[in-house]
Simulated scan of single mutants.
Amino acid sequence: MPRLLLALPLALLTTLVQAEDAHHHDEPRHGEALAAHEHGSARLNLALDGDVLEIEFASPAMNLLGFEHAPRSDADRAMLAAARARLEQPLGLFGVPAAAGCQVREHSLHGALFEPAEAGTSEHSEIEARYRLQCSTPDALQGLNLAALFGTFPATQKIQVQLIGPRGQQGLELSPERSGLTF
């Protein structure tokens, strides 16, 4: 009888874990959007802590490439390669002031279109870019100007920004007409 009493909680725990796994199976996986997928809109999270600037940028692939399907032609593959190359250069893309002396310490790009095994698995592909910059003169990092991002990816019409900096947390919306932010 004591073994049965010990086995019962184990069986219940296993059932609960399986139910929880099944529940999470339908939730977004890494690289999938948590928020609504809206063409023309992107999200930007920034955190400035001392001499480190963390940047997370997420956008529908349509804004960056003009398509969301797996590349079907040489032109599609060229667009994907060009977007990747541009996203791998965050200092210019996000208007980081040269006077701040920032260097990219880490960066990563995620999205089904960058991972061929997953390409074409969704009608609404997202691209996420994450960067960690270390700045030798962080006092010179008073803000960013995303004019280059809007110019490089003109289908991006607005960016929802969440910013944590020396003056606390703030949220704002940037557009091609209003592309600057201050920390």
Rank of each mutant, 00 (worst) to 15 (best):
R3T: 04
L4S: 13
L5N: 08
L6W: 08
P9I: 09
P9G: 04
T14C: 14
T14I: 12
Q18Y: 06
Q18G: 01
Q18S: 04
A19P: 01
D21P: 00
A22H: 09
H23C: 02
H23W: 10
H23T: 06
H24I: 07
D26A: 13
E27L: 15
P28G: 05
H30E: 11
A33W: 00
A33D: 03
L34C: 06
A35T: 05
H37V: 03
E38V: 15
E38L: 14
E38T: 15
H39A: 15
H39N: 13
H39W: 08
G40E: 03
S41C: 01
A42R: 02
N45V: 14
N45W: 04
G50L: 06
D51H: 12
I55G: 06
E56Y: 07
F57V: 04
F57L: 13
S59E: 11
S59H: 00
S59Q: 10
S59L: 08
P60H: 01
A61E: 09
N63H: 09
L65P: 13
G66R: 08
F67D: 04
H69A: 14
A70H: 07
R72W: 06
D74T: 13
A75W: 02
A78E: 15
A78W: 04
L80I: 04
L80W: 06
L87Y: 13
L87Q: 13
E88C: 02
P90K: 13
P90F: 00
G92A: 12
L93Q: 02
F94P: 06
V96R: 03
A99F: 07
G101P: 08
G101N: 09
G101I: 04
C102H: 09
Q103C: 03
Q103G: 12
V104I: 13
R105E: 14
R105Y: 08
H107A: 12
S108C: 00
H110A: 04
G111P: 05
G111T: 02
A112N: 12
A112D: 15
L113W: 11
L113F: 02
L113T: 02
L113V: 11
F114N: 02
F114L: 11
E115Q: 11
P116F: 08
A117E: 14
A117Y: 03
A117M: 08
E118F: 10
A119M: 05
A119S: 12
G120M: 04
G120E: 10
G120A: 09
E123H: 12
H124F: 08
S125L: 05
E126C: 00
E126D: 14
R132C: 00
R132S: 10
R132N: 03
Q134G: 06
P138Q: 09
D139Y: 04
L141N: 10
N145P: 03
N145F: 11
A147V: 10
L149C: 10
F150G: 02
F150N: 07
F150R: 07
G151Q: 14
T152N: 11
F153G: 03
A155V: 08
T156G: 06
Q157F: 06
V161R: 09
Q162W: 01
L163Y: 07
I164G: 07
P166S: 14
R167G: 11
R167A: 15
Q170M: 10
Q170C: 02
Q170A: 12
Q170S: 12
Q170P: 03
Q170K: 11
G171A: 05
S175L: 01
S175G: 09
S175C: 01
P176N: 13
R178Y: 09
L181M: 12
